[in-house]
Write a protein that binds this DNA or RNA. Structure first.
Lengths: 142, 142
DNA sequence: CCCAGTTGCTTGACATCCTGAAATATCAAG
DNA sequence: CTTGATATTTCAGGATGTCAAGCAACTGGG
């Protein structure tokens, strides 16, 4: 059962696991620097792109809508987000980042050093190879 | 500020973000199939390798020891883990997986299809290249 | 040996995240 | 207008996480 996967694949999976762990660690750490939790940072990141209905946020976060209520509440309480009414459908509330929210989100993106440092090890050519391999692993047919 | 990273690097980072998201999703899903949360599955995975002091678990999970108490409590309540005394140091409690816990953990590992399916797309040679690139990104000098 | 300080674990209080069910308001279709 | 579906919120409850306080046991200097 356990030995059906070849050692090479197993090694790659383990490496990916390590990357996942480190990515998370850095993300939470960067969020904490702005006194945000991971969930709050994720929502703020989405909102800084475009105002979004609560329901859609829940879909993007893969969680229940009732959960999003609390997260947006906390962002709103800190002046990073606000709720607007959708003129086209009065049931809908559009969560949107405030100016302060957009700024915080931009700073957060900038401090996510996971991007630059480790990948700087690779040449352009290697980065291209890595990109293509990752794309295929993800089943990107484009 | 935002444009200091070249597009290629940005693309790779985005791909890694996608992998992280998918990995997490599959992991939680697989854990849920055994009525485990992600944290419980992670701890059980560690314990199925070797009995571990609570303190060490906290270090591996990067959280406070007081948090581990509750997680192991829940695993213990379900017969998947147990606490043993360390004969060498009576302060220490060694958390260990029971037979049932080891079995559950093995099933869980087996159902983590993230390993096989996507990587099957690649040839052995490509997997080797991917492994080496990932190792370098992670700063593995070995 | 003994005492002081350190270490390992647990407990309690508290915030956050998350789910599921029920309530409210609005839309949309017959 | 009535019926059913949709968007959001509220509430109850569980899990995860932090921090401070407490207890038990180790350790080293006198």
């Amino acid at each position: 059962m356990t030995s059906r996967i070849d050692p090479l694949t197993l090694e790659v999976v383990e490496l990916i696991g390590t990357i996942v762990a480190r990515y998370h660690e850095e993300y939470e750490e960067a969020a904490a620097k702005h006194a945000l939790t991971g969930a709050q940072a994720r929502v703020l990141g989405l909102l800084s792109r475009a105002p979004t209905p609560m329901r859609r946020l829940a879909q993007q976060l893969k969680c229940e809508p009732s959960n999003v209520t609390g997260i947006v509440d906390r962002l709103e309480a800190r002046g990073l987000a606000e709720r607007r009414l959708d003129p086209a459908d009065r049931r809908v509330k559009l969560a949107a980042a405030t100016e302060a929210g957009r700024e915080t989100s931009a700073q957060l993106r900038g401090s996510l050093d996971f991007a630059r440092e480790p990948l700087a090890e690779l040449s352009d050519e290697e980065r291209t190879v890595l990109r293509d391999l990752l794309k295929r692993v993800l089943g990107d047919v484009s």
